[in-house]
Design a protein around this nucleic acid. Sequence first.
DNA 1: ATAAACTCTATAACAACTATAGAGTCAATC
DNA 2: GATTGACTCTATAGTTGTTATAGAGTTTAT
Lengths: 135, 135
Amino acid sequence: MKIGEVSEVTGFSVQTIRHYEKEHLIASAERSEGNFRLYDEAAVEQLLFIKQCRSLDLSLQEIRQLLALNRSPGAQCDDVNRMMDRHIEQVEARIQELTKLNEQLRMLRLSCSNRRTVEQCGILRNLSATPASHS
Amino acid sequence: MKIGEVSEVTGFSVQTIRHYEKEHLIASAERSEGNFRLYDEAAVEQLLFIKQCRSLDLSLQEIRQLLALNRSPGAQCDDVNRMMDRHIEQVEARIQELTKLNEQLRMLRLSCSNRRTVEQCGILRNLSATPASHS
DNA sequence: ATAAACTCTATAACAACTATAGAGTCAATC
DNA sequence: GATTGACTCTATAGTTGTTATAGAGTTTAT
């Protein structure tokens, strides 16, 4: 299988697959006589694994760790669990942040209706106001 | 005021302030004899405005637009409102995404407890399984 | 023989910073 | 007057995960 076919099967772009090779997320592919990369089923499997992880927003670094663990099947999987827990924490923290942000944005948005001039724009006026100090 | 003082007052790092100058979010600062940047109150105000915007996750590009609008006080502020609406939409879409992600992560996390070997790890096994096709 | 479609490498761009190196400036102390 | 320390300057590279580009080579079909 050449890289274009692998791209179609996995949904990764051709450049992304080459990028993953450079970043050692997948092994360097064998080459054809004309120096084209050649892939087998195992490589495709690994890319699909990576695809799954990326869809969960795991970083390439985290995926590298998972792949390494996957290669040492006797190891305890506490490490996997710790990583997942940390990742879940991060996602939840980000949701909290964005939820708070959303409230502020909606509040700010209420302070202006259309057909006003910028001079009277509540949004801009609020953004210019010095925020309450947190000391 | 030299850049270090402005950094303390605004909470931006020194490099970030210089970065904003290069990106034309603030005007090029006057220089002292020894070529140090010198800032006045107006510059600090503008940086605080930018700080407010950044705390709302507005992009530098969006902030540039707001600053431009702020400079033409006679203009209608429909543009400001449109931008805010679009931004709010984006934030809400991201919250939705992350919420869905969080459910999936928690589900996955349940599939493994500690003290198993990686071979039996439910997380890794689930990640390796071919996902249901969406065709 | 040639064209179309593919692949190769290397490099730059994106966003919004952060970090580093190497040099210059300024104020205070010995 | 020389030196020290704290500050500042510019220019450049690194971060993350791609995407885009240029210029060249390969393969397949006509």
